[in-house]
Design a protein around this nucleic acid. Structure first.
Lengths: 189, 189
DNA sequence: GTCTATACTCCGATAGAC
DNA sequence: GTCTATCGGAGTATAGAC
């Protein structure tokens, strides 16, 4: 792999693990097996490299989620598959994690990929909810936009609960609760 | 106020804003108006001071949430009041935020107050859900434990969405969606 | 209790040789 | 492209005077 690619991947890993403030150029160089001069030859500095890493992470997250949300099954089944997919829960979300970093939030260029990714996810799920409403899979009156936000928030917050407790159980519990709330509408109507 | 108190309060603010890694002893001293020697006289170091600050923040959060969850109204009304309470959404949750800090999560003493607080909140809400089930305010079949986890996760995740977008709208939307799901007519026969 | 002095390392970057 | 040298500042303390 090329040196820039190794630098970007190392930065992705470190940003996920330690955040922007907690990630130093030196640590990136060590992880990538690249020297100081090499890193500053390919990137103008830490923030430039972080932008490349965050953009790539955001893209990868879209692909991962998209495979399930655009996959086989009914709208409800796809949302369920997304919620129940295998996750390294205790590592947290590589995108959502960065929203707690003030230096990332303060920089519009770094924040943009985070916003775009979570917004894309919310929209994609809202569309599925609408399709599920149309085919009777969800309770009439379900508001796709807000409920999609709830779904994304539950996942993001599930990571918080899991990391606080040191166990993925809390994440699973939050998802279970959400799925039960989304359960099939009464057949009586 | 005493010097230790000023140091603790300054640390609380900085941990909320910048996290553990992003908070330096020097910044704490500046914010507290205390000197180097003074800080190290009252606390053994950064982590000791952080423990005091985190414990106090956790206690304050319990009191704030408790005032609404133990307040007037039916169980459903109290949960709703908790979800709709005024928040400085873009600042995030001073407790949840720290779960993304690897140095906090790696230290059981620092992690314990986070876990205890979120666990307390989840339990308190689960109890209210059970009471609401008993008086018919929630759909039969609602599982108090998991749904309580969903409620707490939605709030924590709402902060993530809001900070990503730079607006509190996404938080409000996630809460709206959650309230609508909790208000849905009985779907389990 | 608080102050200043000191120590050693890392941070984030630039400069210039090869 | 990559290396080494260098830089001013910040991080996280410890020591000892007052």
């Amino acid at each position: 792999m090329s040196t820039p690619d190794r630098l970007i991947e190392a930065t992705q890993d470190l940003l996920w693990e330690r955040g922007y403030t907690g990630t130093s150029p030196k640590a990136i160089q060590r992880a990538a097996g690249a020297g100081q001069g090499s890193m500053y030859h390919h990137f103008t500095g830490k923030s430039d490299l972080a932008l490349a890493a965050i953009s790539r992470t955001a893209q990868e997250m879209r692909e991962t989620a998209g495979r399930l949300l655009d996959g086989p099954g009914t709208p409800r089944e796809r949302i369920t598959a997304y919620l129940l997919r295998e996750r390294e829960v205790l590592r947290g979300c590589p995108v959502g994690r960065l929203t707690m970093d003030p230096d990332v939030i303060a920089d519009d260029a770094l924040r943009a990929p985070l916003d775009a990714t979570l917004e894309w996810l919310r929209e994609r799920i809202a569309t599925l909810l609408q399709e599920g409403l149309d085919n009777g899979e969800f309770a009439p009156g379900t508001a796709p936009g807000p409920v999609a936000a709830t779904i994304v928030a539950t996942v993001q917050g599930g990571y918080v609960l899991a990391r606080a407790s040191g166990s993925s159980t809390a994440f699973d519990s939050a998802v279970d609760g959400l799925l039960s709330l989304l359960a099939a509408p009464a057949r009586t109507a």
